[in-house]
Each structure stands twice: as structure tokens, then as C-alpha cells.
Design a protein around this nucleic acid. Structure first.
Lengths: 196, 196
DNA sequence: CACCGGTACGTACCGTCGGTATGTGAGATA
DNA sequence: TATCTCACATACCGACGGTACGTACCGGTG
């Protein structure tokens, strides 16, 4: 049953997460104080500690929100019908674009592995971007487009390359041009894996 | 002239850096307190703040020490005479092994980009591992081994892939096996870029 | 050798921040 | 309407990064 109190509560929680995403993106995890988070959300630390067990948990909530919203747009691209190769490359391009959004870049790519610990980050990513990427690679193998190889490993390498590529674009003086170059380079790598 | 005071001072500084490398490796940047660092070095915070402007500066000193010591062994491999292809692949293997050392993995690969900021990290890496990798890629292009392509970009992608590969190995339940798989996968990627 | 200046620290302290304990009032329940 | 409960607010604590200041000792000078 949907009571009024539950709505208020959910709204408060959402405000906290939104505030957290915003500040973590701008100033990073260590540079963000909880006092500031609650101030922006127009609540107090009491509210924060009622909804979350601490700063780490708040970060994970922010992480989940950014990932959940990201995965929606990406899934649409990757699950589209049609040629496997076309689908996969479209997915790559979509992911690179996603990595360029400040929230994704800062929270998911840069901060999360350190804040959550690489192990925990890896585990969480199974259900999000990385899981999607691995699925895409698996599809290519199944479709016979690329050589037989350990999908898990290759997906890891690609994931790392994509993240590095996105960071390069983001800090470039000419993002447009760098973006095209990164895209071409990644496609070139994939072409290299393609069966003749 | 090498005075006694200068030697004592240098020794103190070195003890601080060693202590910092050790603790940053075990507990990460945020998880390491300066009180603990100075305790291990058997000095006080006064000494620390005499030698370094703050925690960040201490981290950069630790970063530089780990990188400087790493670069020596790697340079030997990459500057060896002989076939460019052989040299490059040997360099890749050497780098992956280096990434498996806890100090390198934690401080250089995982923490540094967040603690120093990606921009500053990128700048520092120019003189260390990344600079070496780019040189290796450039050599392959010059030797006509791989296709013409933006060396900078390709080096970035490879760097990301290698880091991800190393992290995967490090957290694997069977590092030996995963290590071989990662090596093979990376060589496969490089083979794909090779001219026919 | 006496003196002095500066370097290389040690000590005491401050502000900030993550986290906790407890109070409280609005809304659900009977 | 009385009570209970939950969703916060308030007040406070300890840890930690950083600063201000005191001091001992080394090295040069007359």
C-alpha cells in the first residue's frame, strides 16, 4: 500500500542520491563532504544516515543510479535485430559516447574502482556495462564473426581500452577529432580480430 | 659538498617515502593516515611537512619512486637490439608482469589517476610507463610491422587494455592460467594490427 | 673556541569531516 | 482520540589533515 509517508521518504532518498551524483561528479568522492550533500538535498545528516549506512553506501546508490540509467539506452542499441557485426560496432560507439558524459566518466570509470574496491566494482559491473559488453563479444563469437578466444578475457581488455579511450577523448583539446580517431582505432582493433 | 646533515635529511625523506609506498600499497590513499606513515618512519609529522607540502605531495613522491624503479627494468627490455616485433612483444609481457606487483598495481594503476587527477597522472606517465609503451608502438610503426595509425591513440588503448588485463590476473583465482590467457589475448590483438 | 644563523625536525593545537546517540513531531494504526 | 512508529533533526565525538611555533644541532665565521 502506497502511503503518503512512503512517498515523502522516497522523495527524500531520491533527493539525496541526486545530490550525491551531482557532487561526486564535480568534486569526486574524497572531495565531497556529506554536509554539502545533505545541504543540497535540503535535509540533514539524520536523513542521510536513516537511508544509507554511510558515505560508501551513498556512493554505491549513486553508482547504481548512473549505471541503471545508462544501461537503458545501451541495451536498446545492443539488442537490436540485424547483423551481429553492425550491432556490436554500434554498441561500441554508443558506449564511447556514454563514457563521455561527466557523470559516467567520473563516477563509474574513475572513482568507482577505487572507492568500492576493484573486486566489488567488478562484481557490480557484471550486471551493468561490462555485462553488456561481454554479451556483445559473445554474440560476435557465436555469429562466427571473430576468432574463438576466451570471451571473458577479451571483454576485459576491450573494456579497459574503451575506458582509456573515453578518458583520452574527455581530456582532449579537440574532443571531436580525438573522438573520431578513438572510434576508428577501436574499430581497427576489432577488424584485426575478425575472421578472414 | 656532501655534508652529514644532508645525509641525515635524505635518509629521513627516504624513510618517509618507503613507509608511504608500503602503506599506500596495503591500505590505499584514503585508508592511510599520516600519523601511521610517520610512526613507521620513526619520525613525526613535523618531519613529514618539512619534506613534503602535504599528503598529495607524499603520494606523488611514492608514485615517482615506484615508477622510477619500474622503468629501469622495463627500459632494458624495450631498448634491446634485435627484431622490432620480438622486442615489442617482450616489452608487453614484461609490463604485464610489472603490473602484477602489488605496489605498481595499487599505486600506479588504480590509485594514481584518482588521487593525482587523470590529467596530472597522464602528464606524469609521459615520462614513465606510458612514454615507454608509446615509444614501443612508434617503433613498430616505423619498422613497418603494423599499419599506419595515430600512435598516441593506439598507445592509450593498449595501455588501458594492459591495465585491465593485469587487474584481471591479479584478482583471478588461478593467476597462472589467467596470465597466460591475457598474454595470448593481447598478442592476438597485436597480431590483428600486423601488416599482412 | 665562541658565537651565530639556519636547517631539520618535534610538539601542541585547530578545523573539518565521517559517524553516532538521542530527541521529536507528523502521520499511520487501532 | 490515544498511541505508536517511523522519518527525520540536533548535538556531539573521535580521527585525521594541516598549521604554528618551539628547539636542538650542524656548519660556517671571526
Amino acid at each position: 500500500m502506497r502511503t503518503r509517508r512512503a512517498e515523502y521518504s522516497e522523495s527524500t532518498r531520491q533527493a539525496l542520491v541526486d545530490s550525491a551524483v551531482d557532487l561526486f561528479t564535480k568534486r569526486g568522492y574524497a572531495g565531497t563532504s556529506l554536509d554539502e550533500v545533505v545541504k543540497r538535498a535540503r535535509v540533514t545528516k539524520g536523513a542521510l544516515y536513516h537511508h544509507f549506512s554511510g558515505k560508501q553506501a551513498l556512493f554505491e546508490a549513486a553508482f547504481t543510479q548512473v549505471e541503471t540509467r545508462s544501461i537503458e539506452s545501451l541495451t536498446a542499441v545492443v539488442t537490436a535485430e540485424g547483423d551481429a557485426w553492425e550491432t556490436a560496432t554500434a554498441g561500441l560507439r554508443a558506449y564511447v559516447r556514454k563514457c563521455l558524459e561527466p557523470e559516467y566518466q567520473r563516477i563509474i570509470v574513475h572513482e568507482a574502482p577505487v572507492v568500492m574496491g576493484w573486486e566489488r566494482w567488478r562484481e557490480a559491473e557484471e550486471h551493468f556495462s561490462f555485462g553488456l559488453l561481454r554479451t556483445a563479444v559473445q554474440l560476435l563469437v557465436d555469429a562466427g564473426e571473430i576468432d574463438e578466444l576466451p570471451v571473458e578475457i577479451m571483454a576485459r581488455l576491450l573494456f579497459g581500452a574503451l575506458s582509456a579511450g573515453a578518458s583520452t577523448i574527455a581530456s582532449s583539446s579537440d574532443p571531436k577529432r580525438t573522438g573520431r580517431e578513438v572510434e576508428r582505432a577501436i574499430l581497427r582493433v576489432l577488424e584485426g580480430l575478425r575472421k578472414k
